[in-house]
Design a protein around this nucleic acid. Structure first.
Lengths: 222, 222
DNA sequence: TACTATGCTCGTACGCTGTACGATAGTCAA
DNA sequence: TTGACTATCGTACAGCGTACGAGCATAGTA
């Protein structure tokens, strides 16, 4: 029976299957749509069966976050540190855009899972090998994480995901909320963005490169 | 009766009073401890009475976020842009540290409240007056917000708030989770931080000044 | 003064949540 | 055959947001 379970695709639960299905459900319906009963339904099981694999919903959420971390590319080892960091940051942004619920969950989860730790270790290793001192690598690691998660948090607030979606709603939705007499500067900004186009992915790279360049001088210092 | 309400301190509800009490309750008990019934209890009212002042719990949460924005200092007008931005960023960090639940709420709230808009307007104004072009001011505004909220998000994950608290638990709690054979670099980092001390407030300024310096060149460009 | 309209308060109830507890059935070792 | 162990899940409970509508005080009008 146990062997059947490990092989079987549809029948048989496992922590892995529960957590993966939870991620899919959250992707589809948002974190508010993720209840133990609904998750059990999606797995064709009774609600209480899930508690054989996860101790509580909290533990499930922790495990979901770690699945997300597993999806983020580790920094490649064969390039310079800036390219490596850029690559993993871009990957992280994509992953967090794919799982928008994840960023909101992070706030409440205090102890990092194994994939999270492995990821941090790889990033720190990359920075140390590039010549950052222990303390400077810590600063750099922290700042890069602040950038990636901060961007994802801000992006999650925006009601659009792509340049096209922005263009579609900007003129009708945003500008009317910003009357020029009350918000002259914001109105000006919004109008300029409408004219120039706005692409979150480009914005991400723009800020990321600023941060990377700002970190470069730390490499030589203690 | 209406007049009594406006003057009375204890009796008589109002949207203002409901929202402020909600913020206090969330500060005390976390956002999970904030239920309509408990909030009503704290106000000495029935649960359903609250719905005369807020249309739904969602609207209440929106209003709470805006109260938080109201607490953040606007950038002062009489100094150079970097000092002004530093000041408002430091204020924002303090406010978000005071209301740790706020950062988690932001993720799900898509339309900014009036205080939020006023704040953004003031920041944009400051940058434009300092010589940033419309587009560069937008970039700068975005990056600064990413930094402030990203930092707050990361800080919310840490199980300590001050340098002392970190020192207290670092050796007993963090290092054992990072065995040197599995996580050599993280272990090294953690050990170095224990030795050097770690203060979130200092870390905030460190990264903030990097970001501000990185933005300076944008001031002259289109 | 009597009647109505309006603003405010809140009791009750419904469908949902996470999960404690205990019953059940299948598998395996002795 | 027995007993232990694993896995499943039905039932129940306290708590959630809130729809609905009843009850009351006050203000405005006739």
């Amino acid at each position: 029976m146990r062997k059947q379970r490990q092989v079987a695709s549809d029948a048989g639960l496992s922590k892995q299957r529960v957590v993966v299905e939870a991620v899919l459900l959250a992707d589809r319906e948002g974190v508010d749509g993720l209840s133990m009963r609904r998750l059990a339904g999606a797995l064709g099981a009774g609600a209480m069966s899930l508690y054989h694999y996860v101790a509580s919903k909290e533990e499930l959420l922790d495990a979901m976050i770690d699945v997300v971390f597993e999806e983020i590319e580790l920094p490649p080892e064969e390039t310079d540190w800036q390219s490596a960091m850029r690559r993993r940051a871009v990957s992280a942004r994509q992953v967090l855009a794919r799982h928008p619920w994840a960023i909101g969950l992070m706030e409440s989860r205090t102890s990092p899972g194994p994939a999270h730790l492995r990821h941090r270790e790889a990033v720190t290793a990359c920075l140390r090998r590039a010549g950052f001192s222990v303390l400077m690598a810590t600063h750099a690691n922290w700042l890069l994480d602040v950038y990636v998660y901060g961007f994802a948090l801000q992006a999650a607030n925006l009601p659009f995901d792509t340049a096209d979606e922005f263009a579609d709603m900007a003129e009708d939705v945003f500008l009317p909320q910003l009357p020029p007499d009350e918000f002259p500067y914001l109105n000006e900004s919004a109008a300029a963005l409408v004219a120039a186009g706005y692409d979150p992915a480009e914005e991400f790279i723009f800020g990321l490169d600023l941060v990377l360049a700002a970190l470069e001088p730390l490499r030589a210092s203690a």
